[in-house]
Structure formats: C-alpha cells, structure tokens
Write a protein that binds this DNA or RNA. Structure first.
Lengths: 189, 189
DNA sequence: CTGTTGTTTCAGTATTGACAGAAAGATACG
DNA sequence: CGTATCTTTCTGTCAATACTGAAACAACAG
C-alpha cells in the first residue's frame, strides 16, 4: 500500500481555506445560473486575488488545462468582466477583473439583460404584433400583454439602475436596509 | 420518393403561430437560466392555455414522452408553480399554473432566492467567520465583506418585494415607469 | 376481486457540453 | 530570418444531463 501523499492543492495554498471555499462555491452557483463552472471559478479567483494573473498561473491554481483557461478568459472578456493588462518586462498577458462588487454586478446585469432579457421582450412584441395573435382567446392575449408589460417595467428599472454609480448604488442599498429595519420594527411593535 | 406529409404540429394547432413562438422561446430562455427546456416550455404552455391540462394532452402538444412530462410537472410542483386540480367526471389529474405574471414572478424569485441566493450568503458568512479568513490580505477581506454586504442588501430588497401583493407590485412598476419617463424628459430637456 | 385507466419509477440510450492535449498561430527578440 | 515564448484553435474523449419506453404501481368501477 503506497503512502498517500498529501494531495497538493494550489488553490488552497494561494487563497487559504476560506478563499478556496469562496471560489468553489462561486463555481457551483455559477453553473446553476447557466455559467460554466470553470468560468465562474476563474472570475472568483481573479476577484479574490485582486491583482492581475497570467493564464499559466491560473491554470496551475485551478488545476485546469491551459487551453480551458484560455477559453474561459475569452468568455469573461466577452462579458466585459475581465481585461488584459501588461507588466513591465513580461511578455505574457495578465488578466484582471474589477475590484468593486457593485461594479461587477452592474456589468453582469447589463450583459445578461442585453443577451437574454431584451431579446425576450422583442419576441413578445413580435408575438403580439403577429396577425395570428388575434386568434388566441382574449384572456390569453391579455396574459401575454401583461407579461410584456411586466418585463418592460423591469427593463426600465434595470436601465435606471445601470445608470447609477457604484457608490450611489451602495448608498441606495444601505438606505433600503434602513427602511427595511424601520418597517420591521413597526411591524414588530 | 414518398409524398411528404405536412408534419403535424400540435403545439401550433393549439396555440397558433404566435403562441408557438412564445412557448419555444420561453423554453430556449429557460435553458439559459438553468431551467430544463421541457420544464420551461411546459410552464409557458400552461400559462398560455390558462386552463388546467392533463399530462396526456401536454405530452401530445409538446411532442415529448409522457414520462418526461410527468417529471417536469413534478419539478414545477416543487417550485410551487403548478398545482393539481380535478374536473368532474374525469379521473385524470389536471395541472394548472397561476394566471398572473406578477404572481409567477414572485414565486420564481422566492424559490430561486431560497435555493441559490441565501445559501451563498450563508457561505460568505461562514468564510468570513472562518479563522483562516484573517490570513487573506486585508484588501481581499474587504472585497469579500463588501460582496456579502451587497448580497444582504439585495436579499433585503427582495424580501421586501416578496411581501407585496401582485397588484401593489404592478402599481409600483407603473410608478417606476412614470418616474423614468419624467427623468428621461428632464435629461432630454 | 378483477379489469381498466391513469401515474410514477426505473434502466438504458442519446445528446449536450466541458475539458485535455496536441497542433497551429501570433509576436517579440536576437 | 530564425528562434523562443506565449496564446489560441481544433479534435477527440469524457461526464453530466435529458429523454424515452417499459414496467411497476395506485386508484377506482363494475
């Protein structure tokens, strides 16, 4: 029976047990939200590291093939979540992500909205515009129209939010929290 | 060369071209959001139909195996999006979903939040509580704390929203739209 | 009790998407 | 121009998930 070596865990070495947990969980959640696990982990790692990393290093830390990292980085760049930087005296590309979670959220919301939400709104509009739409029974027509209206409202809210600075958003959130505490206090009383 | 029959399309027959577009697109979008395509289509169909349907009929309309429909219905019931009803003189189970899009949205937000958002908040709290967390460099610690704070804010907002009636939500949305129009008008002026 | 009707579970199959490793492609340096 | 270094693309493999059809199960009527 061979002596079992402690499996080397570069991720843990790099960001500690807590950081490891964070990165792995993020990957897990990502895949539930239709984001490739590796992509999500990679983004979490860059966020946590808070400094530019090159592909080789990422590949070693996440223990994923270099080529896979390349693809994932490309994906993150398409999402405007990662950008390339260069360090003096080093030919390699370094990659980094924004440090501010509000900024990140804004980017993600903007991109998902553009890719998934807006097209759906468009499809709903087209459905309603379609001459065949009138054939549907009136109640169903109403439901579709209400759905469109709901999505348009949300779309508007989102655009509104996307126009705000991170600092403003954070302030708004704190304000919301305060209001909620008040509301809860009132209910409890 | 055999004469090509017009492929029968029960979905189209049932809900027309516009409805078909709606159902198929919904399925497409669902799978992008981590929802099984069949499940999403099925829900869209029930929403559009606006009346209880039995599994056999759904199976025929969506052209999907009876058993697959069964599984998908179970899934939707777990999400509280579909419930069983019975019609006089018919032994079969009939399934229906809420008619009100706001109601549906509320349910979906509630469920996804409970399954995916809240656990992440918990993990973040645990990461921060972990003694190993202190080993991270202070800037990274700050980022994680900010992330937690962001998610807690969102969580609070969501809970707030979940407490409201559909009618209230719809009113709020209309209000939001009005505010947006005003804001845009002001900017334009 | 038994046949009928309807629903669910299960086991195998197919499809999809992720991934590794190899090869090709770019870019800077001597 | 080569050569060295780094990045991307491509192809086959593997794993996860969705899906089907069959069989088991349940409820009910006669």
């Amino acid at each position: 029976m061979p002596v079992k070596m402690k499996a080397p865990d570069p991720l843990r070495e790099r960001v500690g047990a807590a950081g490891q947990r964070f990165v792995l969980h993020w990957g897990e959640m990502g895949s539930r939200w239709g984001v490739n696990r590796t992509v999500a982990q990679l983004h979490a790692l860059l966020f946590l590291a808070g400094r530019p990393m090159h592909a080789e290093e990422i590949s070693a830390v996440l223990q994923v093939a270099r080529s896979n990292i390349s693809t994932s980085l490309r994906e993150l760049q398409n999402w405007s979540l990662v950008r390339v930087v260069h360090l003096m005296g080093d030919r390699r590309d370094y990659y980094q992500t924004a440090q501010d979670p509000w900024e990140l959220m804004r980017i993600i919301v903007r991109e998902r909205k553009a890719r998934e939400f807006d097209p759906t709104v468009r499809v709903l509009r087209e459905c309603i515009a379609d001459p065949a739409f009138g054939e549907l029974d009136p109640a169903a027509q109403k439901r579709v129209r209400e759905t469109l209206s709901l999505m348009e409202s949300l779309s508007g809210w989102a655009d509104e939010m996307l126009g705000l600075e991170s600092a403003t958003l954070a302030r708004l959130a704190r304000l919301g929290a305060k209001v909620q505490r008040l509301a809860r206090g009132k209910k409890a009383a």
